[in-house]
C-alpha cells in the first residue's frame, strides 16, 4: 500500500438475503457484537436475485470489496435460490479472475439467521483483507 493510502478505509458493499444473512446480521446487533462500520448492506430477497451486474456496478461506483451472502444450502427460504446463485457465481468469479479482477475483493458466504458471530467474523476478516489490499484503484481508474 502506498503512503497516500495510509488511513484508507475500504468501502464494502454487501448484498445479503433477507431471510438468513440479514437476520444473522440482525442477531449480531441484538447480541451487541461489534464490527467495523465499513459495510453497507443492500437487502435482496434471496441470493437467487443476485445479478452479476450488481457486482460490476458496485465496483464502478467505487466499492473496494463486494460481499454476497445468503442461506446455507438446504436452508433457502425459497428452496433453491441459493443453489442458482452458487452456480452462477462459481463461474462468474472465474471469469472475473480471468480478466484481472482480484478475487480477494469479492467474498461469498452462507450465513444463517443463527450465525450472528459468523456475520461479524466474515465482515471483520473481509474488511481487514480489503483494507490491506488498499483502494481498488485499477477499477476506479477505468470508472473515472
Amino acid at each position: 500500500m502506498s503512503e497516500a493510502d495510509q488511513g484508507f478505509e475500504p468501502h464494502i458493499v454487501a448484498f445479503i438475503c433477507n431471510w438468513c444473512t440479514y437476520a444473522g446480521a440482525d442477531l449480531a446487533g441484538t447480541s451487541r457484537m461489534q464490527y467495523q462500520p465499513n459495510v453497507r448492506v443492500i437487502r435482496i430477497p434471496c441470493t437467487g436475485r443476485m445479478d452479476p451486474l450488481f457486482v460490476l456496478k458496485a465496483f464502478e461506483r467505487g466499492a473496494d470489496g463486494v460481499l454476497i451472502s445468503g442461506c446455507h444450502p438446504g436452508d433457502c427460504h425459497y428452496g433453491e435460490g441459493n443453489y442458482h446463485a452458487r452456480r452462477k457465481f462459481a463461474i462468474f468469479r472465474k471469469l472475473l479472475e480471468f480478466v484481472g479482477i482480484d478475487l480477494a475483493r469479492i467474498q461469498f458466504s452462507w450465513i444463517s439467521a443463527a450465525e450472528g458471530g459468523k456475520w461479524v467474523s466474515v465482515i471483520e476478516d473481509f474488511t481487514n483483507r480489503v483494507r490491506a489490499l488498499g483502494p481498488y484503484r485499477a477499477y476506479q481508474e477505468i470508472s473515472l
Binding site: 458493499v13 443492500i42 435482496i44 430477497p45 434471496c46 437467487g48 436475485r49 443476485m50 445479478d51 452479476p52 450488481f54 456496478k57 458496485a58 461506483r61 433457502c76 427460504h77 425459497y78 433453491e80 435460490g81 442458482h84 446463485a85 452462477k88
Partner: peptide, 29 residues
C-alpha cells in the same frame, strides 16, 4: 418472490416488485 428469474434473464425483461432492478441500481448508485 425470490427473484431467481430476474437474474437468469439476459435482457432483464422480468423484474421483481419490491426489489426491482431500478431500486437495486439506485441503492448501489
Amino acid at each position: 418472490g425470490c427473484g431467481t428469474c430476474v437474474s437468469v434473464c439476459f435482457s432483464n425483461s422480468i423484474d421483481l416488485e419490491g426489489f426491482t432492478d431500478e431500486q437495486i441500481y439506485a441503492e448501489i448508485n
